[in-house]
Design a protein around this nucleic acid. Structure first.
Length: 280
DNA sequence: ATGACCGTCTAAGACGGA
């Protein structure tokens, strides 16, 4: 079974491109972030026409998360228990959607950006990650064998090698110790980041700014991850950051990230001739 | 070449992104 996570930066601006990528990449389950639309604006038919079921949660032109699956989509959860809110009055944003697909609970997560270190949005980001850790820890305490994938744009570069030049990030969000500690806490709650072993750095990223020729100059950040529960991590057989999809006109500023799992629907051993992911 | 921001809301700039 092949799962993917991708911050698409508007599903309306890029729907055809997303659909073509899904089909070309033989993806079974996709966790999608930054759809930038309300539910009634989501181009559902683009994906149902390809055999995917669709769950989307979007409240405005901001944020928006979806799960697309062709291996079943059940028990949809809008947000996770304890998810912090934003605004006045404070309310949860459209940043988390979970569904059980092919026996795996797949979460599409869009962690708040943080904006600036001295911005209230930064503390919101830290609270959000702490709440995610607490939720994940609770789920694993209830069922240590649960297959859970925390997929998404974490908006944290956990290691110095995850940005092109640490000196350029002096005083910036995404690389501060509190953010990295918050990310590490989710990992230490039992969720292994399963992509890095197959796509090691340095110089391997998932995001490149649209500005200043960042992509051709290879100035990127690794901020999109798949964090797997112990039972799920044991099934991972490969992973790939598809930087080809960042090329050309009409690309998202994030690349899709794919992970292959042994067993479950679409297992390679039961589908001869299907090539697995080779890694970086 | 992979090429010098992009998307949304709204009608010219503001906001968010990271």
């Amino acid at each position: 079974m092949r799962i993917a996570t991708w911050n698409v930066n508007s599903v309306r601006a890029r729907g055809e491109r997303i659909a073509a990528w899904l089909q070309r990449s033989d993806v079974d389950v996709a966790a999608v972030q930054e759809t930038k639309c309300r539910d009634e604006q989501f181009p559902t038919e683009l994906f149902t026409d390809l055999g995917y079921e669709v769950a989307h949660h979007g409240l405005s032109q901001w944020n928006g998360v979806a799960v697309l699956s062709r291996v079943g989509l059940e028990d949809v959860q809008v947000g996770f228990p304890g998810q912090p809110g934003w605004g006045d009055p404070e309310a949860p944003e459209a940043r988390a959607l979970g569904a059980v697909c092919g026996g795996v609970r797949v979460w599409s997560l869009y962690v708040p950006n943080g904006r600036e270190v001295d911005d209230p949005h930064y503390t919101y980001k830290l609270r959000w990650l702490e709440a995610l850790r607490a939720y994940g820890a609770e789920r694993l305490a209830e069922d240590p064998q649960a297959g859970i994938a925390l997929c998404g744009d974490f908006n944290v570069a956990p290691q110095d090698d995850d940005v092109w030049d640490m000196a350029e990030f002096e005083g910036s969000t995404h690389v501060t110790k509190p953010e990295r500690d918050a990310f590490t806490s989710v990992v230490e709650a039992g969720f292994t980041e399963v992509v890095r072993p197959y796509a090691p750095g340095p110089g391997v990223y998932t995001y490149w700014d649209y500005k200043q020729l960042s992509f051709p100059k290879r100035k990127g950040m690794r901020i999109d991850f798949v964090l797997a529960s112990p039972a799920l991590a044991a099934r991972v057989s490969g992973a790939l950051i598809d930087r080809e999809e960042r090329k050309g006109k009409g690309a998202s500023d994030h690349a899709p990230v794919m992970v292959d799992l042994d067993g479950g629907p679409g297992d390679e051993s039961s589908a001869p001739g299907t090539a697995g992911l080779a890694g970086a």
